[in-house]
Nucleic acid binder design. Structure first.
Lengths: 188, 188
DNA sequence: GTCTATATTACGATAGAC
DNA sequence: GTCTATCGTAATATAGAC
């Protein structure tokens, strides 16, 4: 791991624990047993730590969604794949996932705009998959906005559940999430 | 509204928008068109603003849960009542609800302990209602921890959905939430 | 109840030696 | 690549006049 990667990792850990604004460069430097000024040899600002963490993860989601959209799958199977993306990225790094849910507000205006445009593109794609599933009769004709919101709420908070249930395998997690989120509203 | 209430209201608004740590007493004072030092005639610290907001809401949830537990209702009807509590408190003040989900980390150790003990008592009560519902066959024999987590995720993020759908009546909101969260997993 | 003035501390970031 | 030293700024909070 490069020194920059170590800084990003320490940042993610501390930003999650005590929020971005309440974390000082001192705190991050202490975590790596160096002086705060030494951080600036690897990153140009505290904001850069946050934006690198958030934007790289946002891009991973957008990329994953692109693959799903292009796949030859039924809407229901696409939903399974989307759950799988969330599980994979959550298992990979719960701290980063926590920041995506809670700390994006602290991005500068410019970075926030990029982040939110990724997020709404992602939500729009998921919504059109849900619509398609309803059209094909794979899912009940529910309040689509609330269902979308409900599914995303659970997937966005998955990191906190996973931290307390790390013994479960990603595959099993995908299965019970699907049952819980989708089969609940599937026809019949 | 007393001056103290105005301060709490402005605090909730700003803490939600830009987080607790990134909000200065200056910011709150500006919102009320007074000087920052004047705030201290009504509150003793910035932390007091946060803790009053969070602990009063946490107590409202605990009180609501107590009433539900003591009521002579089926587990399913109890779940309906619990959804109703969340809807009521969300409709009352989405800013406060946002803080409960996102800003509790910034409570001092002492206050955080009180807050988290309220929260886990609440979760424990909800879990035992779910268990009872399964025992009586009102709900499928699901992964109870994940269902609990999934229901709470949606209810805790309801404030953000409600802010974008303020035209819906509380009653209708309760009904579609119940359909989405509970009927989905009810037997048959 | 609000103001001005101020004490005290901490922060992000830079310059320059090693 | 890390260090010491430091600049400039902004934060919470208090004291005391009006």
């Amino acid at each position: 791991m490069t020194q920059k990667e170590k800084i990003l990792k320490a940042g993610a850990k501390l930003f999650r624990k005590q929020s971005y604004s309440a974390t000082s460069m001192q705190d991050i430097a202490d975590e790596l047993s160096i002086k705060a000024s030494s951080l600036y040899n690897h990153i140009s600002s505290k904001q850069e730590i946050l934006s690198e963490l958030l934007l790289s993860n946002a891009e991973a989601f957008v990329k994953g969604m692109k693959d799903v959209k292009e796949a030859e799958l039924s809407p229901t199977d696409k939903l399974k794949r989307i759950i799988s993306i969330h599980v994979r990225l959550t298992v990979e790094d719960t701290n980063k996932m926590s920041l995506m849910t809670n700390e994006w507000k602290l991005l500068t205006e410019e970075n926030k705009e990029i982040y939110l445009s990724h997020r709404s593109a992602y939500e729009k794609s998921l919504k059109s998959i849900l619509k398609e599933a309803i059209k094909l009769g794979e899912i009940k004709d529910v309040n689509i906005d609330l269902s979308l919101f409900s599914i995303l709420s659970t997937l966005r908070w998955l990191y906190s559940w996973y931290d307390r249930n790390r013994d479960i395998s990603p595959i099993d997690l995908e299965i019970i999430l699907f049952k819980n989120l989708i089969e609940g509203i599937v026809t019949k």
